[in-house]
Simulated scan of single mutants.
Amino acid sequence: MLHSYTFSNFQSFLEETRVDLTVTRKVADSDWISSRPTGERVSKVMAVLGANGAGKTALLKPAAFLGWFISQSFQNPIGSGIPVAPHFAASNEPSAFSCVVDSADGHLWRYELLCTRQRVLREALYRKEKRFDHLFIREWDEKRKNYRIRQRDFGLSDNMIENVRPDVSLISWAAQYGVPLALRIARPELPWVTTNVTGVGRIKSSDDWLYVAARHYFEHPQHKDSMNRLLSSWDLGLEGVEIRQMNFPNPQNPEQQQTVLLPVGKHRSHGKLYDLPFALESSGTQGAFIHLMRVLITLEHGGIAVIDEFESDLHPHMLEPLLGLFANPDINPHNAQLLFTCHAAEVLNILHKSQVMLVEKDEDCESRAIRMDKVEGIRNDDNFYAKYMAGAYGAVPRI
């Protein structure tokens, strides 16, 4: 599970910012909190609230970026660089990232990265036994124009190190050579992070994503069954969703046929079932169909779903059943996590104050974030929803 991540000089965040999912013993036990083999208690959910343009999406991006960089950066086209964007007040300075996670064997791990758009300047992986000891430390030597790499029980041979690309994580690089520890960490066949966030922002729902989700449900019938059960139970007017194979002329070669998978909604009216192409369903139904694909992948295999505007096009009452999937140990046996932004303040009536981050941007275009339970003067018996809406905690539009 992800315990925390920090970052600095990244997009609208200049100073070091920490997103901490661990909670103290003072927080009451709930199904949204997991007691870890390492001794910590870690939340399965974290909501991010703030005004438009405050930096909510930017707060999510480091988690999505680290998941991609560690596991998949080897696949990045040569010469394309590292997709980081420093704050424009420090555009010539590097960006820094770190994260702390635990593994099922009871170990705590820390990963650190310092980089520019062009190259990794420092990268390190630590594992905690009695203390954090490095498995590797990789540092750029500007004078010699090469990397100095120290490793301990990581398993990368000298010939593997010789040509390491400057814009690739050493973990992702080692995984391509079959290094067992790197393969275990990178998990290239199923990344730890499932997200709708890229370096340029949220991937918006579209017809293309309906087709992507349809193919996923077609290839994973267990997820299709869960999606149908959940959508039908959430009173969206659906009896279910059918995935149909349709043949169309290939645009590249009209003489050939191509098979397309199309979702079709099944609706009952006056005792009869009727079909409705999914492109004509409500945006809320389409959004839930796509969101559930990402959520169900994470729930089945573990890891973290990082989703921007989680409630987009959904009624606020849909938040609780969606979040409840992560609290249900039968549905979430691997303690998968959800990190999300939303504009629905109703989430404050669902989650504990330690499971909410508030984001604001100042007059210098610098974003800052604070976990809600760290807000000065906040009380356990506060009506969090009412006080947030009244502006008592900040992170609301200035109108």
Rank of each mutant, 00 (worst) to 15 (best):
S98T: 15
L210Q: 03
G377F: 08
G394C: 12
T341C: 00
F136R: 12
R41F: 04
V23I: 15
N349D: 14
A64I: 02
Y126Q: 02
V100H: 06
V23D: 07
V27C: 13
W173Q: 15
L325H: 03
P62S: 10
R379N: 01
R379T: 07
I331G: 00
P251C: 13
Y177G: 15
K130G: 12
P221Y: 00
F289N: 05
C99W: 15
K56S: 07
Y393V: 08
G265Q: 01
I350H: 07
I171L: 08
M389P: 01
D105K: 08
L280S: 04
C342R: 09
S34F: 10
I203P: 00
S43K: 10
E40M: 10
L231D: 01
Y5W: 13
D133K: 13
G324P: 06
I307V: 14
G155L: 11
S98M: 13
A386H: 06
S205I: 05
Y217H: 02
S354L: 08
N196Q: 00
G199M: 08
E320L: 15
I203F: 00
D153I: 08
V100T: 13
I185F: 02
G39L: 01
F384E: 06
L299F: 03
L261D: 00
S8L: 06
S205C: 11
L59M: 08
K266V: 03
Y126W: 06
L114E: 09
V23G: 07
Y274A: 01
M293E: 02
R148C: 07
M246H: 01
M227I: 04
D381I: 09
T298I: 02
L348H: 06
S43L: 11
V212T: 15
M1N: 09
K374S: 13
D102Q: 05
G81C: 06
R138G: 09
Q176A: 15
H352N: 15
V164R: 10
D225T: 10
G106W: 01
S354N: 10
W68I: 05
D141V: 13
F132W: 04
K204Q: 12
F97L: 10
L292H: 00
E255H: 12
R187P: 01
D207G: 14
R150M: 11
K361R: 13
S8P: 02
H343T: 05
I304C: 08
I137C: 08
K145C: 04
L325W: 00
V197D: 00
A305M: 03
E366D: 07
D31N: 12
P188A: 04
